[in-house]
Design a binder for these strands. Sequence first.
DNA 1: ATGGTGGATGGTCCA
Length: 255
Amino acid sequence: MKIATWNVNSVIARLPLVTQWLATAQPDVLCLQEIKCIENKFPREAFAEIGYTAEVFGQPTYNGVAILSRVACADVRRGFHDDEEGAHARLLAATVGGVRVVNVYIPNGAFVGSDKYDFKLEWMRRLRNFLDANAERDAPVLLCGDFNVAPEDRDVYDPAAWRGKILCSEPERAALADVKDWGFVDAFRVHQKGPGHYSWWDYRAGAFRRNDGLRIDHIWVSTALAKHSRGAWVDREPRGWERPSDHTPVVAEFT
DNA sequence: ATGGTGGATGGTCCA
């Protein structure tokens, strides 16, 4: 089983790239974030034509997550139990091929100390609570998505410049570590130990050309699923295509 | 060079 995650920054604007990538990478599951559309504008037919069903949790203009899969999804969950009306569409869970997949778009947080930053930290606390209440540690569970946190300095192109900044600050790293303490293993780090692997590069200032990136998109797995991990990698190629997302896919493979 | 780009939208907000 091959599963991938990709923040596409508008699924409508990125449709040609996503279908092209699916055709070559051939994942069984692709979790999307920032689809930036409501469910009835999601290009469901284009994905169906190449063999993927879609579960969608949409929202106008901002956020939105979806799961594309070659097999049917079961037990689909949209958002937290205690979400209020109109809450951000940032969490979509489904059982696919025996794996409980939790697809998240963790808030960006704007800048350290902002209201959005507080919202981000609180959202991560709610995610941990969601996992405690809804996921089984002994089962194959996979948490993936745009986490908007670079967990360690080796995930950052210039750690000194980013120290304490948004996406790297200690409170964010601690909140994410608490999510990980639910019982996850970073599938990417099982296979890749070194620095220089990034999943996001700012659109501005030629960041991709200079490889000024951060590793903020992740695939984490329960220890039960980690036993079946056969590989994990970042596919940098779509970031270099025409009209790219600022993120590129992260992929993990399991037996 | 003290900014820069990109998406949804139709003024700015968000990243």
